[in-house]
Design a protein around this nucleic acid. Structure first.
Lengths: 200, 200
DNA sequence: ACCTGAACACCGTTCAAGT
DNA sequence: ACCTGAACACCGTTCAAGT
């Protein structure tokens, strides 16, 4: 039985250590983008980062922990963008607001299509074990708030559940359509979300 | 650069060979169900199948080819169930028909929840390389036919695209809700599908 | 304290030897 | 022809030695 510990081994305090973690994460990002999952191995990441393999394992207890750190980092960027967008759409009608949120999510993913797709895949592979991450919960919360604000316009029986389902649906559509023209994809995502929310 | 050849190495003609392939696929299924992806390795599969590792590689050029064969097998079962269900719903109203198809898909997945989830994940991981499989195309075709029959009741601009999106959505929802009570899940899948199809 | 990298273990795959 | 399994290569991870 494998232990599933994806927490970073230590929060590095010393300046050099902070830098090393940054190097490692940057290297991991580059390796994943350029060589995809097949080329993603810890020895290669350490090499690209310019640190020894031993140092990598001082900060990340295993390869999956490194992947989880990347997922966290990416999701933090997304939650910031989504929260900002959600605030801006305050008084606008549902359809328009959804369209803007969808656009943010799609743009976020299309900034680094290969990487985002891989990280979503890895998140699914790891999710049964991993506790829902801080940033994943933040995204969920932002979406629940958004749905509450539009409570009168939607027909879902349970807002929590709806938020989860919508996140699942949007991720799936966006990942399955990597490379699709942004506007077309936006319209289909909008259809899926509002269709789900307003079904009666 | 890796070659991506997922085709079985040979279609076994001799009776002993046919049996061996069956043993190997059954063993792979058991290993995946019991030990999940972490325990799924070719040496273990060969051992459980009672054949030598060399024999496994005579029929499958690599591990992914073995996985693809499992995916194919599972999807063939699903396409049969779906086609049958689609025929039975012939003259019924859209919502009811969708509910029945959704039920078939959910039951199919919940028969072996762990296995189905893993195979869906692996399918995503492999899909950029792999040609869309025969059975995946069959499922797509069945769904397109179904949508054509209800053309007047749905608002999607493109039936092909809609079929793809719906498959993506249903898989994602079902995989994300492994272990959820069947009836609740059915209602949410129905909402997602009909919401998408009838959005205006 | 922290870094290093040789070494170990595990697993995908091959191929010389056996039938 | 087909099967076998020891052996090789690659990669995740550790740990003794160095600073």
């Amino acid at each position: 039985m494998k232990k599933a510990n994806y927490k970073p081994r230590k929060r590095p305090q010393q300046p050099r250590s902070v830098k090393m973690v940054t190097w490692i994460l940057d290297a991991a990002t580059r390796v994943l983008e350029k060589e995809s999952l097949e080329g993603f191995n810890t020895n290669r990441v350490a090499e690209v980062a310019g640190v020894s393999i031993g140092s990598l394992y001082q900060y990340f207890p295993n390869k999956d922990a490194l992947t989880v750190a990347l997922i966290e980092k990416t999701q933090q960027e997304l939650v910031i963008a989504l929260t900002k967008a959600a605030e801006l759409t305050h008084a606008k009608p549902l359809a328009e607001s959804v369209r803007e949120l969808a656009r943010v999510a799609i743009i976020h993913q299309q900034t680094r299509p290969r990487l985002s797709r891989i990280l979503d895949l890895e998140e699914q592979r790891l999710s049964p074990e991993a506790v829902l991450s801080r940033s994943a919960r933040a995204i969920q919360t932002t979406l629940v708030d958004f749905l509450q604000q539009h409570r009168k316009d939607i027909t879902v029986p349970n807002v929590q559940e709806a938020a989860t389902d919508i996140l699942t649906i949007v991720k799936a559509l966006v990942d399955a359509n990597t490379g699709e023209v942004s506007e077309k994809l936006e319209r289909r995502v909008e259809r899926a979300i509002i269709g789900y929310l307003c079904y009666s």
